[in-house]
């Protein structure tokens, strides 16, 4: 994670990933119903990986706590939009706290609220967490996830507990999800090239030198953490409207590991890395899933034993780190190549 990152605005750097996203959504997302769902989930995960990129990629501080923001975002959006009868009846034998049963909000308003709530919680917890460095920060952020998971898993007054909350209305439109992803991408891009992004990257290189330069590590980290928490909340919200359910277990260790590996495999120092990591791991996972189910992949039928998919994904991940510890993109942004004039 020691690679530079981009500091100056360049329309090519910004448009490059956006165009790739549009192409992926159009060609893959429109190919079949099953691929449409995969694409929609990948777009949600991409927003999550962007959230990690803006904080982890810039500050170099590993966060295991972002699953908590996704969890909260997902929960807020689901509880605000799920039909009253479902909340009233289906949930854990009517244990849900009364004021949570009646609210009915438009999906997009709910998404904004979920980002805001996650951002707010990031702000409150960040005031404490961002004072820490290194491994202590990593464990502290994990403690945040631990508390969120533990509370939501066991408390049936605020949510479904260990069960799933069904009936969350769907956003069954690739382009709306794409739009949300692109908006998040633009936000993260501008943070990365802003003074906050540059300062954070400077503190990553040398945590000792920063105070000497009059830089408050705490302040810039906190700002990045809040934005990152809000984007993670949005991603959780999006996910609940793609999956149609909210379930606490979706946002624990496996989620944390998969999203962090997407970031690191792609290369944590750039948005392009986040994109490559998310879609590559999703694609590999999908291909292997089809192999496990003995379905043809691009016309070729290869069968692999059931359950070996996860082994292969994790092995690929470890292999990428061994091959290139800066990730596949090694910190570079993707640029649309300039058209050469023909002379």
């Amino acid at each position: 994670m020691k690679h530079g990152g981009v500091t100056k605005f360049s329309i090519q750097n910004l448009l490059g990933p956006i165009i790739v996203l549009i192409l992926l959504t159009h060609f893959v997302g429109g190919a079949s119903t099953s691929l449409q769902l995969v694409t929609q989930m990948a777009l949600c995960l991409f927003v999550m990986v962007l959230a990690l990129q803006v904080f982890v990629g810039n500050s170099g501080v590993l966060s295991f706590g972002h699953g908590a923001f996704a969890l909260i975002g997902s929960y807020v959006s689901a509880i605000l939009t799920a039909p009253v009868n479902i909340k009233d009846n289906a949930l854990s034998m009517n244990q849900l706290w009364e004021p949570l049963v009646s609210p009915q909000v438009n999906i997009y308003v709910a998404l904004v609220i979920s980002a805001a709530v996650s951002g707010l919680i990031a702000a409150i917890t960040g005031i404490f967490l961002m004072r820490l460095n290194g491994l202590a920060a990593g464990i502290a952020t994990f403690a945040l996830l631990g508390v969120a998971y533990n509370v939501f898993f066991n408390n049936k007054k605020i949510g479904p507990g260990s069960q799933a909350l069904p009936g969350v209305p769907l956003i069954d439109n690739n382009w709306i999800l794409l739009l949300l992803a692109v908006l998040s991408l633009i936000l993260v891009y501008f943070i990365n090239i802003s003074r906050i992004g540059r300062t954070l990257r400077a503190t990553r290189e040398d945590a000792m030198a920063a105070p000497a330069l009059g830089i408050s590590i705490f302040k810039v980290r906190l700002i990045a953490f809040i934005i990152s928490g809000a984007v993670a909340g949005l991603s959780g919200g999006m996910y609940s409207h793609v999956a149609g359910t909210f379930q606490v277990q979706d946002y624990y260790l496996e989620f944390t590991f998969i999203t962090l590996s997407m970031l690191i495999v792609g290369g944590s120092a750039s948005i392009w890395g986040a994109l490559v990591g998310t879609f590559l791991i999703t694609a590999v996972g999908q291909v292997l899933l089809m192999m496990e189910q003995d379905l043809p992949v691009f016309g070729i039928q290869v069968q692999i034993p059931l359950g070996s998919r996860a082994v292969i994904i994790a092995l690929t991940f470890v292999a990428v780190l061994l091959w290139r510890s800066g990730g596949i993109t090694n910190g570079k942004e993707f640029r649309i190549p300039k058209l050469k004039k023909i002379s």
């Binding site: 590996s261 690191i264 359950g307 082994v311 994790a314 780190l321 510890s325």
Partner: peptide, 19 residues
């Protein structure tokens, strides 16, 4: 290598072994 990368790699190894 950066300890953060090693930690993440150990996560990966952990998953591999679990499976």
């Amino acid at each position: 290598v950066n300890p953060a990368i090693m930690l993440i790699a150990s996560f990966g190894l952990s998953t591999v072994l679990q499976r």
